[in-house]
Design a protein around this nucleic acid. Structure first.
Lengths: 205, 205
DNA sequence: ACTATTATATACTCATGAGTATATTTTATG
DNA sequence: CATAAAATATACTCATGAGTATATAATAGT
C-alpha cells in the first residue's frame, strides 16, 4: 500500500483530503465568527484567509447558514463526547459531574465550543435553529442526569436539578466570552477554579 | 400651572414628550433585538411596530448603532444603580453581595438587561464598543469590590475575587438567554434560587 | 399673520454580501 | 488518449437594509 508521497492517491486519501479541506474551512470560519461575529464575517473574508475563493467554500458547504451549523455542531459533538465519557466514569455522582464540568468548561474556551456559546439561536435559519437547539438540549439533559444521579446517591445537594444545570452551564459558558487563549491562566486552570467555586459556593464552610 | 389637557403644552411637557418617544423607540427596538437579534432587525421593522416611519427614528436617534448603544446603556444603568444600592446597605459583605446578585439577575431577565447580555461586543461600532465595554467593566468592578469586602470581613470564602465575579456573573447572565417572561417561575424566584445555589455550592454541607 | 422649528412621511441612493452562472484547469478512469 | 468528474476561479445578479434628500404638516415664538 502506497503511504509515500506518490502523486497517485488512493480514493481514501482523496476523501480524507476533501474532509481536511472542509475542516479547514470550518476552523477558519469559526475563528472569524468568534472574533468579528457571524454577520460581520463574509464568506469572502473566510475564503481570503485561506487564500481560496468564495465559490470554493460553496463547493464544500452549501451556504453560510450551513457553515455555521457545522461549526456549532462540531462544538456540540465535543460536548456530547465529554458527557458520555463522564457518564462512564467510576466514582460518586458529584465526581462524575465535576469531571464533566471541567471538560465542559475547557471546550467552551476552545474554538468550536466558543462558537456554540457565542451563536445566538436567532442567527441560524429556522431549520438549523431546530437542530442547534435539539443538540443543545441533549447536552443539557446529560448534565441534568449527572446531577440527578448525584442527588440520588447523596453526593450532591440540590432541590432543582434543572435550575442547577442552568446555573452551572451559565457560569461555565461565560468564559467563551472573556477568556482568551494566550491569557495568564490556561483554560484548564480557569475551569478547575470555577468548578471548585461552584462546588463549594462562596459562603464559608 | 397648566397640568390639564390643554393643547398648549409647556416647554417641559414638550421635552418630556420627546423623551417619552425616544424611550418608546428604545423599548421597541430592545424587544425586537432580543427576539430576532440585532442584525435580523431593521429599523424599518422597529418603526413599523410603533406605526411610525423609519426617518422618524432617525429624527430621535442618530443611527442604528446608537440605538443599540442606548438600549444597552439603559440596561447597564440599571445594573449600576443596583450596585450602588447594594453598596449602601447594612450587613456583612456576603449579605450585600447577595442582595446585589439578586437584583443583578432580575435585571438580566428584563428587556434592557437581556439586551446587554445578548449583545456581543462585536455588534457595536468601535467607538460604541469602547463605551459598552467600559460600562460593563464598571459593573464587574463593583461586583468585585463587594466580594473583596466580604472576604475582608470573613463572610465570603474565596481565593480569587476576579474569577468569582466572572463565575457569578456568568451564571446570572445566562437566564437572559433562556428565561421568558411568562414562564412558570418568575424572574424573582429564579434569581433567588440561583443566588442560593451559588452561595452554598452543590456539595452537601 | 409671518417665520422658524419640530415632527413626520415618501421616495430615493448606495454599499454590501450571499449566492450563482460559467469558464478553466486538474485528476481519475474506461 | 478521451471523456467524465472534481476543484477552483472570475465575474456576475440580486435582495436587503442603512441612511438621506426632500416635501409637508403642525407648532411655537415674534
Amino acid at each position: 500500500m502506497n503511504t509515500l508521497d506518490s502523486p497517485f492517491r488512493s480514493q481514501k486519501q482523496r476523501l480524507d483530503d476533501r474532509e481536511a479541506k472542509r475542516q479547514a474551512v470550518l476552523r477558519a470560519a469559526t475563528q472569524m465568527f468568534n472574533e468579528r461575529g457571524f454577520h460581520a464575517t463574509s464568506l469572502e473574508d473566510v475564503a481570503a484567509s485561506l487564500d481560496i475563493s468564495k465559490p470554493t467554500i460553496y463547493h464544500y458547504l452549501g451556504n453560510k447558514d450551513q457553515v455555521l451549523l457545522e461549526c456549532v455542531s462540531f462544538g456540540l459533538e465535543q460536548l456530547q463526547e465529554a458527557a458520555e465519557t463522564a457518564r462512564k466514569q467510576p466514582g460518586t455522582g458529584i465526581d462524575r459531574l465535576r469531571s464533566f464540568l471541567q471538560r465542559y468548561a475547557e471546550i467552551n474556551m476552545d474554538d468550536f465550543g466558543r462558537c456554540v456559546i457565542r451563536t445566538g439561536d436567532e442567527t441560524l435559519s429556522p431549520d438549523s435553529r431546530r437542530r442547534f437547539r435539539s443538540l443543545k438540549r441533549k447536552i443539557d439533559k446529560a448534565m441534568r442526569e449527572l446531577i440527578e444521579e448525584g442527588i440520588a446517591d447523596g453526593s450532591i445537594a440540590c432541590t432543582d436539578a434543572k435550575l442547577l444545570a442552568f446555573t452551572l452551564a451559565g457560569a461555565l459558558n461565560w468564559p467563551a466570552r472573556w477568556h482568551e487563549a494566550g491569557g495568564k491562566q490556561s483554560a484548564k486552570e480557569v475551569a478547575r477554579h470555577m468548578v471548585d467555586v461552584l462546588t463549594q459556593g462562596f459562603a464559608p464552610r
